[in-house]
Design a protein around this nucleic acid. Structure first.
Lengths: 238, 238
DNA sequence: GAGCGTGGGTGACGACCGTCACTCGGCGCG
DNA sequence: CGCGCCGAGTGACGGTCGTCACCCACGCTC
């Protein structure tokens, strides 16, 4: 079924064709039925802000399709992209559970279907469905893991090129496609955004990319990037 | 009751005098009874290693008393202290839940009582006691929050002095004691360890501390530090 | 086609901080 | 007592990268 912004929407979770592959949503029928009863489905265009750092959580957001950028900003206006959330992830969990302010902001990077569940409904859901509670603990564990990796990368890297190399390697593992010319990645971010992912500046990214190109560690063709993973690994000391 | 290493031990959770103030342990009687049945209590001296980064989790560790240093290291030998865990925290949760390798190492900073629960027992416990599952989700949410703060600090700080200022302010909020001479902190870490907390070197910490002293932002008397929080806040741009 | 906004490329400069090397004081131990 | 170790303080030096400034290419609207 087609809707605004050209997104295939899944109107209810029970019939959702992706459910099996979504760790959080993949629950037994009764739980899914409850989920269906308490969720609000919406489709957002690119650039929509789901919530803002510091705001009191009204509930959780389940990313059904699309990608969502999670950021945190300094008062100086400098922005750090903490994570790009993909389909299947649940956003705003920790704030909702602890009833404490969101620690990041969330903005869609492309047209996305997002299910919203109000805080009271969600807490009740966890209380009545142990399965949902377990899945929530798993989601949180994964978020914690990825936060931990981010801390490692930010705190232990010797140089900016190392951080960039680690970012690319991470992308390769997550969504790379092996080809004879190296691992292929679709890069859908601007230099500015890449810079914000590793806490540096646009200029530095531009320079590092040409450096990597010159050293034949990467090759760029349109929005595709071919990565020689072995050469990048040599830059990483962790 | 006194035991080795001069630590007061709580031999069982049911009678534990601290239970009410420990978010995780504070459960209804039946759950606590189960907890008692599956836990193993031990008292470790300072410097004991509970687990090591990369290891497959055997279970979770509940800190009953003492402090535990959580670290991650690069292959170059550089170490980052991710967090100092205090009494009441549960360690190894995310790894145990996801059955994936520990992402940090844990080492006691002082004699500590630690309860261990084997993975199978813990997972079973979560399944049979919804309350325990909720408390686990809360623990994980808190860990995620603090990881998030760490990411902000590492990624958005303009300078090392800013990171150090933010670390001290964090300590003040957590355990500071207001006095006429400023907020008093007990500093039980070496310069080396402070450096590892913010991803810098010992020399830089030494220099920054004398700088802060010169600028009358802090004063050091033995193991006490008196902090002028307002002046440090001026260094922080976040 | 002109004008404008956005993303990318590049040079010059300088501060910050990591590295190395050395010193010093305190403490425990044989 | 002398020795060695550890934590701390300090100086010199050099590389990295953030900052500022400018230019260019492309795509959009009017």
């Amino acid at each position: 079924m087609k809707t605004p912004y050209n997104v295939n929407t899944q109107n209810n979770c029970t019939d959702c064709s992706f459910r099996a592959e979504r760790p959080f949503c993949n629950m037994a029928a009764p739980a899914v039925k409850t989920l269906d009863a308490i969720k609000f489905t919406a489709v957002y265009p690119k650039g929509s802000v789901l919530f803002v750092e510091g705001e009191q959580p009204r509930g959780v957001f389940i990313v059904c399709s699309g990608r969502v950028k999670l950021t945190t900003s300094s008062s100086e206006g400098k922005t750090l992209i903490v994570k790009i959330a993909e389909a299947g992830e649940v956003l705003g969990l920790s704030g909702t559970i602890l009833a404490s302010a969101f620690e990041v902001s969330a903005e869609t990077l492309e047209p996305s279907q997002i299910n919203f569940i109000r805080r009271e409904d969600f807490i009740g859901f966890l209380g009545t469905h142990p399965e949902a509670c377990m899945h929530t603990a798993q989601q949180l564990s994964e978020k914690y893991h990825s936060a931990q990796r981010e801390i490692r990368s930010l705190g232990l890297s010797q140089s900016t090129s190392e951080k960039l190399a680690r970012l690319f390697l991470d992308w390769c593992l997550r969504s790379g496609e092996a080809t004879p010319k190296g691992t292929r990645l679709k890069v859908l971010l601007t230099h500015e955004e890449i810079a914000q992912m590793i806490g540096t500046t646009r200029e530095t990214i531009t320079r590092l990319l040409s450096d990597f190109k010159r050293r034949k560690m990467i090759e760029i063709k349109g929005s595709s990037m071919f990565v020689q993973m072995a050469s990048l690994e040599a830059l990483v000391t962790i």
